[in-house]
Design a protein around this nucleic acid. Structure first.
Lengths: 301, 301
DNA sequence: ATAATAGTGTCTTTCAGACAGTATAGT
DNA sequence: ACTATACTGTCTGAAAGACACTATTAT
């Protein structure tokens, strides 16, 4: 190898250089992963005829220690020195929810200096979408409580000011997490500043009730991404069970997009992404619905 | 504050807990930022009548020390303990290119264990788009050479195998970086494995000539993202000077998408994103072209 | 029979693709 | 006059929006 012969300005070969290399001279950050684990569940129905409503859920963990003791945080943990960041995320997902082999995507890396009062922590966040049917409801054998929260996303304020060379867009987004026992909420202020070609976005938590760290920011960001991606990808199917009706699939889209869709147009749009089965739903007080499964080969052939 | 009174299972208040907290018990990774700084430049023209061709450029730095001595790497550096990851990226961009206040977006965080032979390094990559006109061509006062390379992206292989429950898609992408003095290249193998709903993507460098670390992966990924985003966002304008012709704007799209576009359709599509000026190009051996500027308010009003 | 959902047919609107045709500088 | 680019008009076809209409079950 030619490489072996090259020496640097101190006349060291690569081997010699690496032997002398001391990584400890710089102070290092801790790196963690935080997981945004979403699912969609049926709410209780009352009328035997009506379809059950669905709702978007997020898994949170109650903190048993400082900092933010007794508040709720996203599941996550430190990246070990001998595992990749992705592996850490998979390990955490498995530990917290007992689910593996599921859709997961890196979201964003949060690198502000004072994210954690203990020490400098850089956090790489992942979004996971799981199908509630395949979920082992006993979420998390971990010491702390792992509980599903209902997620609501509301725009409290949206104000656009036209400036000389662009605009300033200020949005206040309220994220509400609720379940039978607890009710958490946070408001994130998002300021988008466009000046000429350059646009800068800043996210800031201006109010947080019961949500630990900067996790409200991550939740807000994840919902935005989820909404965006559901329009042009097939990620929504990760929230569906093996067999599903087209109405259920539409409901999932509607919950995430927070708007109603027209059945005819929706069915046309997702037609290629599903495969008809010969099975039907039963025991509803109305016409049965055909069951479908996901078609992984919808992009061509 | 109620918070102050809460004690953990060791009967410590938050203040006491934080005082005793020792972050050094876990071995920590280093965190770096790597910058993918793209621009578009005119190639030399020959015929006074013909328009100059444009080409996509990427800024690379020649390594002066081990590891990968004498190879080329993306500009980047360690994140200091007292700066945010974004700040580190901005600082590096300024140091390397003397450009600030420019479009920059976090791309992806690369967390494999053996990315760097020196020590465990997790790298957060950023993509920056700069307008070559506003660029101080003396790129980088840093010790090492900072040089623009021409970027070419080619699909060498694309093979889809339909499996029982999905498919396997194998792509080989060749990234070529060239300039007057040097010619670098790398092949990245991308394997997309879909089984049922779950799709896993894996990127691996199967051949690398002159490109340090796993940076070929980052380059490949950045080009994919750039291609994707240029279709539905306005990022392309970050590559344009203050005033530009629609043909120039179209050329930039064509280079990035690597395909020709029809002028009529292109103009319709970007019509709202630009503002007409009353200026024209001059001294071309053909009809002058109207100059436009970016319209930051194109999304509404 | 009725309530409630399942599913389809089709008219309209919007928008991208294609391409011919007109316009205009510099040499 | 000629060349190369600038720019527009319009036909076509694909896809999304809107909405009415038909179908089918458990009670």
């Amino acid at each position: 190898m030619e490489k072996e012969l090259l020496k640097n300005k101190h006349r060291l070969t690569e081997e010699e250089f690496l032997q002398k290399y001391d990584a400890s001279i710089y102070e290092r950050s801790s790196v963690t992963v935080d997981m945004l684990i979403f699912t969609v569940m049926n709410e209780e129905e009352e009328n035997y005829r009506k379809l059950p409503e669905k709702s978007l859920k997020l898994l949170m963990i109650k903190r048993g220690d400082h900092p933010y003791i007794a508040q709720w945080a996203l599941p996550g943990g430190f990246v070990a020195i001998n595992e990749s960041v992705d592996e850490a995320a998979i390990r955490e997902l498995k530990t917290e929810t007992n689910v593996d082999n599921i859709y997961m995507e890196q979201l964003y890396t949060w690198g502000d200096v004072n994210r954690d009062p203990r020490t400098r922590v850089i956090s790489c966040s992942y979004m996971a979408l799981v199908d509630s049917a395949s979920l082992d409801v006993r979420a998390g054998d971990d010491a702390d409580d792992a509980v599903w929260f209902n997620v609501k996303y509301a725009v409290l304020k949206k104000e656009k000011t036209i400036t000389e060379k662009g605009f300033i867009l200020e949005k206040h987004i309220e994220v509400k997490l609720t379940n039978n026992a607890d009710s958490l909420s946070a408001t994130v202020r998002i300021i988008e500043e466009a000046e000429g070609k350059i646009t800068k976005v800043n996210r800031e938590i201006i109010d947080s009730k019961g949500i630990a760290f900067d996790h409200a920011k991550m939740i807000e960001y994840a919902i935005e991404r989820l909404r965006n991606k559901i329009e042009y990808t097939d990620i929504a199917f990760n929230l569906m069970p093996e067999l599903f009706t087209l109405t259920e699939l539409q409901q999932v889209h509607e919950i995430i997009l927070n708007k109603e869709l027209l059945a005819a147009a929706f069915r046309r749009k997702i037609a290629d992404m599903v495969i008809e089965t010969d099975q039907f739903t039963k025991d509803a007080g109305h016409r049965p619905s055909k069951l479908y499964r996901f078609n992984p080969n919808w992009r061509n052939t």
